[in-house]
């Protein structure tokens, strides 16, 4: 009797804690998401009256050239970014985890790009792309470098990519370093005794053992790169000729000021599904490749 009474008191405390938290989470996460879902079936402009339009927004989404262009840019950016970020940060992590001097200082320095805000970093790089690189191009007589890459419809995305990668590598390197530290020293010693060279050691031993960290890094970097916003805001504002308009930026721009509240809500719903699908895909594919010692 006594024991049962105590249990219910304890449960009451747990529920008293969790219910307000759930209400908060529902109000500012689930509720707006449901509202967004609801608006995606309307022609709401963000003000005034609106009507229910069924799946019209979703159908229009697939024939809208600007939306298509933003998906193309975002995917191109995220794919190239994810590959670059993960290759570079794995190389950096291998370097920073080997027998070098000033190890902690160097690790500290290479993380700096990640603590700085994307917006301001974008402004600084914008100056480099607009003035410094063309000046260097002129001085060295390199033709294609003499104009700002941000002004070129074909190359502007590379500028955004450089800044995005510059910041993301810092983050992923730290995670790969902690991954490499989980590989015990005697594994490497066994490799050396077996006479395996450095390449075999890396591809056959190190890499399979850090697969869980590759999963984390892939999911993390893909997700962050897909949601690129700050750098677009400060580097290109989506230009030139909407060639660097990311999905987040388009939703912000046309949804907030462009009178496309309903239409961009549909875009956001699709974007959300795409992110979930890609994350799940990455986790299941790589989950199978994980190896345990």
């Amino acid at each position: 009797m006594n024991k049962r009474n105590k249990m219910t008191n304890r449960d009451k405390t747990y529920w008293a804690i969790i219910i307000p938290v759930l209400i908060l989470f529902f109000t500012f996460n689930t509720l707006p998401m449901l509202k967004g879902f609801f608006y995606s079936f309307t022609n709401y402009r963000g003000y005034g009256t609106y009507e229910y339009v069924g799946f019209r927004n979703y159908i229009d989404l697939f024939s809208d050239a600007r939306v298509g262009k933003s998906y193309l840019f975002t995917f191109k950016y995220a794919l190239a970014g994810t590959v670059l970020v993960n290759v570079l940060s794995l190389i950096m992590a291998l370097g920073l985890n080997s027998r070098i001097r000033f190890k902690s200082a160097l690790r500290g320095i290479y993380f700096i790009p990640n603590v700085l805000g994307g917006l301001v970093i974008g402004y600084i790089f914008s100056f480099i792309f607009t003035y410094i690189l063309p000046a260097a191009g002129t001085a060295l007589h390199i033709g294609w470098l003499q104009n700002s890459i941000l002004a070129s419809e074909k190359a502007a995305w590379v500028g955004v990519l450089i800044v995005g990668v510059w910041q993301a590598v810092a983050m992923n390197t730290i995670i790969y370093i902690s991954g490499l530290q989980t590989v015990p020293e005697d594994v490497y010693e066994a490799c050396m005794l077996d006479g395996a060279n450095k390449w075999t050691e890396f591809f056959k031993v190190t890499l399979p053992l850090v697969v869980p960290f590759i999963t984390i890094n892939l999911v993390l970097s893909t997700k962050n790169l897909l949601m690129v916003f700050d750098q677009i805001m400060s580097l290109t504002k989506g230009g030139p000729a909407q060639s660097t308009e990311s999905i987040s930026y388009l939703i912000y721009k046309n949804g907030m000021d462009g009178g496309q509240f309903g239409f961009q809500s549909a875009n956001a719903v699709i974007f959300f599904l795409v992110i979930v699908a890609i994350s799940i895909f990455q986790m299941t594919v790589l989950g199978k490749k994980e190896e345990q010692l």
């Binding site: 509720l31 707006p32 998401m33 967004g36 963000g46 939703i251 809500s265 956001a268 959300f272 979930v276």
Partner: peptide, 10 residues
């Protein structure tokens, strides 16, 4: 996994 974009306008 919920991106800010979908919550933003509402």
């Amino acid at each position: 996994f919920v991106p800010f974009s979908i919550l933003m306008m509402p």
